[in-house]
């Protein structure tokens, strides 16, 4: 029961919300970047929203099912096939034993979530099934999927409603992704021109050297007033570090837990999911906001999401 990996793609990772509570020992969170599309793919299948999924970027997996299963894909954007049949995102599909799912190339710096109905028999480490690229956990806990891997899932193909429509709000739209709202960080005072500064009034490009740990950003004009040698200090997902006058690092969910560069800003929690759909070559516009507004945005987003969830899945 479950699937066998024929092709792992580029860093296809099994994930849940990740690990909390071990950053003091240097263990990163390693959770999904877009919790909304993660929860939704499980919702479509009638799973608990916290069920494991496969998170894919750039090139997705090719897997063969060894029994009948219910599957779904969410996120943006890929041409996915079940044998020769093209699949749509945000829809449930019944797959038969021996059929092959191919996710292939993921376009426009997107992320694809693959959900499968049932209990995934996976080991946990420190409370999570997430693959961690830094900690040497055993097996799939410590690495991406590769050819020959087998994941066992207890299938239960209960009837589900295939005719359910897809709410507009849950689809990923490319418009509006570029504006990322930020809060001040502990070293924001090192930025040029204080608050009305070049970090926000400037188009910033994502560099090719970006990865799951962080996006490398390049600004055309200097953003730092002065650089500073720092003691290694706490950093977390969303932290924007300035490694030099024009180079920035925006940390993602696989980031290390401490860093030695000035922490010049922090992306608001409500905008973190957008980073699942941005990557090399994309441009970002940072916009300063306040903690009050940031919390309002996060509450609003979860409120809207839970309304949809209840409407469709409860």
């Amino acid at each position: 029961m479950g699937f066998k990996v024929l092709h792992g793609g580029l860093q296809s990772l099994i994930k849940d919300l990740g690990r909390m509570g071990f950053r003091g020992a240097g263990v990163p969170i390693s959770g999904v970047l877009d919790p909304y599309r993660y929860f939704w793919v499980n919702g479509i299948l009638g799973n608990s929203r916290y069920n494991p999924i496969v998170e894919m970027k750039m090139i997705g997996v090719e897997i063969e099912f060894d029994t009948d299963h219910l599957i779904a894909l969410t996120g943006f954007s890929a041409e996915t096939f079940l044998d020769d049949k093209k699949l749509h995102l945000f829809r449930p599909y019944k797959v038969k034993k021996g059929q092959v799912l191919k996710v292939g190339k993921i376009n426009e710096n997107g992320t694809i979530y693959l959900g499968i109905r049932g209990n995934w028999n996976l080991d946990k480490a420190l409370g999570s099934v997430s693959s961690d690229l830094l900690t040497p956990f055993a097996g799939l806990l410590g690495r991406a999927l590769k050819k020959g891997d087998k994941v066992s899932i207890e299938n239960d193909t209960v009837p589900i409603d295939y005719s359910v429509s897809i709410p507009e709000e849950i689809l990923v739209r490319r418009t509006g992704l570029k504006t990322i709202r930020i809060l001040t960080g502990p070293e924001s005072n090192l930025l040029k021109n204080g608050k009305k500064n070049h970090l926000s009034d400037n188009i910033i490009t994502i560099d090719r050297t970006s990865n799951r740990m962080g996006l490398r950003l390049v600004s055309e004009i200097p953003v730092l007033r002065v650089n500073k040698n720092m003691l290694s200090s706490f950093v977390h997902p969303g932290t924007i570090q300035a490694s030099s006058e024009k180079n920035l690092i925006l940390l993602l969910n696989h980031s290390q837990t401490t860093g030695g560069y000035p922490r010049v800003a922090q992306v608001i929690r409500g905008d973190m999911y957008k980073l699942a759909y941005l990557g090399p070559g994309d441009q970002i516009l940072f916009k300063w906001t306040t903690i009050e507004e940031a919390k309002y945005i996060e509450r609003y987003q979860w409120g809207q999401f839970n309304l949809l969830w209840n409407l469709y899945f409860e």
Partner: peptide, 8 residues
């Protein structure tokens, strides 16, 4: 302290 990398 510990950090940067797991167990460092």
């Amino acid at each position: 302290m510990m950090g940067f990398l797991p167990g460092f």
